[in-house]
């Protein structure tokens, strides 16, 4: 039971990480391979701000804003030529461009912050939950993730902006004919997706810590969850995140982290081959 709770907590963070990636992919056709670096950039800004004596909430707010701003900056600068292409060509060019951005950012981050880590896990008391003792930091991190994910779902389901985002995800030209401004909506989605990545820095900083070298691993985790949930499907990413989080926790306990990682990777490969639209299935959007 303790393992499952741990897994759910980890899974919620995976979900948070993957929704940002999948939201941007679904709407813009950009698979952002620098997604993990957004998390790291946010973490570094947060850590530096904390080190400079900023109040915790301000520092974390800065962290989230940094990731959101970095993502939208990517959208309005380097990715501009990408949007002139359609379909597969767009996906491929965006993939190669953001891979370059990921390397560039990785080098810069590791060089500039070799010893900086965002670590918010100040000695927190443990709490009793479902008869199991859990760290309160983990509870807080999970609550943050739940609120953020819930907020995103409500935004997408019930608001006009959310409707516009979903319409663009399904049919870009159809959405334009309905008066949806693709550029503006895309910028908004990059801000949202980037901010979700920034929140991952916060929750990850609560339960453990984020260092400058974590970028690639985070991107890989995000990719695995996104693929298992179905590329571009927000609800799929949430379900896949929690599911893989539990698998991760249980497997890591029994067979060690190395083989667990292999299991997650193989799961992603199998899903692509057997059910490319993700575990929730149905026709892909």
């Amino acid at each position: 039971m303790a393992l499952v709770l741990d897994g759910v907590a980890f899974g919620l963070q995976l979900a948070l990480l993957a929704t940002g990636l999948t939201l941007i992919y679904g709407l813009a056709g950009v698979l952002n391979l620098a997604h993990g670096q957004l998390v790291v950039a946010a973490a570094m800004v947060g850590a530096v701000a904390l080190g400079a004596g900023a109040p915790v909430l301000l520092a974390l707010g800065l962290a989230v804003v940094t990731a959101g701003a970095a993502a939208v900056l990517l959208d309005v600068t380097l990715l501009r030529p990408v949007y002139r292409l359609r379909g597969q060509a767009r996906v491929l060019l965006s993939l190669l461009l953001t891979l370059g951005v990921a390397f560039a950012a990785d080098g810069l981050l590791v060089h500039s912050f070799p010893f900086t880590r965002l670590n918010l896990s100040v000695a927190t008391p443990s709490v009793e939950l479902l008869g199991v003792t859990v760290r309160s930091a983990s509870v807080v991190a999970s609550l943050v993730a739940i609120v953020a994910l819930g907020g995103l779902v409500v935004l997408l389901r019930t608001t006009r902006v959310g409707r516009a985002i979903r319409s663009l995800t399904q049919d870009e030209e159809g959405a334009q004919l309905c008066g949806v401004d693709p550029g503006r909506t895309r910028r908004l989605v990059f801000v949202l997706g980037g901010s979700m990545a920034g929140l991952v820095a916060v929750t990850q900083g609560l339960v453990s810590s984020v260092g400058a070298t974590s970028g690639l691993d985070l991107t890989i985790f995000a990719l695995i969850v996104t693929v298992v949930g179905g590329l571009g499907r927000v609800s799929g990413a949430v379900v896949a995140g929690v599911l893989l989080g539990v698998v991760h926790a249980v497997a890591a306990f029994h067979i060690g982290t190395v083989l667990t990682f292999v299991i997650l990777l193989v799961a992603a490969i199998v899903v692509i081959l057997v059910r490319p639209s993700g575990i929730l299935g149905g026709a892909g959007s």
Partner: peptide, 8 residues
């Protein structure tokens, strides 16, 4: 480490 940045 900055070499990676140059490659990117």
């Amino acid at each position: 480490q900055l070499r990676l940045t140059v490659y990117g």
